[in-house]
Computed example of a mutant assay.
Amino acid sequence: MEILVILLTIIGLSLFEIITSIDNAVINAEVLSGMSKKARRWFLTFGFFFAVFVVRGVLPFLIIWIANPSISPLSLLSLGGGSAARDAIEHSAPILLIAGGVFLLFLFFHWLFIEPKHYGIRGEKFFHAQGAWFFAIVSILLTVIVWFALGKGAMLAFGAVVGSTGFFLIHGFRQFAQQQEERLLSTKNNISDLSKLAYLEVLDTTFSIDGVIGAFAFTFAVPLINCS
């Protein structure tokens, strides 16, 4: 049974990361193609390193520490952390799970109703045409989730709200960044490489945060989240 859970976790994380990474890579390639060689080299060496590796390396530890402030940073970095650290993480597991789950649920409905796409699955066009219903559906879902979570504990309900808040914060920044994409890619506009680098940093950082928060719906194994 444990092997099955491990396999499902790895498969779920892999699919989630593949889907988001392809989208990220396509946008990066489009913007990088209009930049100088020096700017491309800088982004691929330093900018990409920060937006992806630093965020993915630090954020999972930071999230767990915020949920468990009693754990010392040294205990978190030691991965094992001792029995006290493991007990604290296990105690906060439902909060992290519901936060990651709500985030992932909102991400799915955003893709279903709003995300621009080429239709490949039966019914996609219908749902995409009902984009106005996205906010109504996720609002109702959040209300229902919080209602039932309150029966288990206030912190569990708070975790659900944190997941939804994280989604709208991250996607608000991403939506603003994507609105600038057409202007950045336009040959008529003389946009500096610095502006394009800033755009890519924001975009890649939001994709990385997406991956980290969504990964908590699958696992609390920080090394696995770091590598995903």
Rank of each mutant, 00 (worst) to 15 (best):
G82N: 14
S83Y: 08
A88D: 05
A88C: 05
E90I: 10
H91P: 03
H91D: 13
L97R: 01
G100N: 11
G100P: 03
G100M: 07
G101I: 07
V102G: 02
V102N: 09
V102I: 15
F103M: 12
F103W: 11
H110F: 12
W111N: 05
L112W: 08
F113P: 01
I114L: 08
H118V: 15
Y119C: 12
Y119H: 12
G120I: 11
G120M: 12
E124V: 05
K125I: 14
F126C: 10
H128D: 12
A129W: 02
G131H: 06
I137W: 05
L142F: 11
V144L: 08
W147H: 08
A149V: 05
K152N: 13
K152R: 15
G159C: 07
V162W: 00
T165E: 02
G166F: 11
G166E: 15
F168H: 07
L169R: 04
H171Y: 13
Q180I: 06
S186N: 04
K188R: 14
N189I: 13
N190H: 15
D193I: 06
L194A: 15
S195Y: 07
S195V: 01
K196P: 01
L197P: 01
L197G: 07
A198R: 02
A198C: 03
Y199N: 03
Y199Q: 02
L203S: 09
L203Q: 14
L203M: 13
D204L: 10
T206F: 11
T206C: 08
I209E: 01
G211P: 00
G214A: 10
G214F: 04
G214D: 04
A215P: 00
A215H: 08
A215Q: 04
F216Q: 04
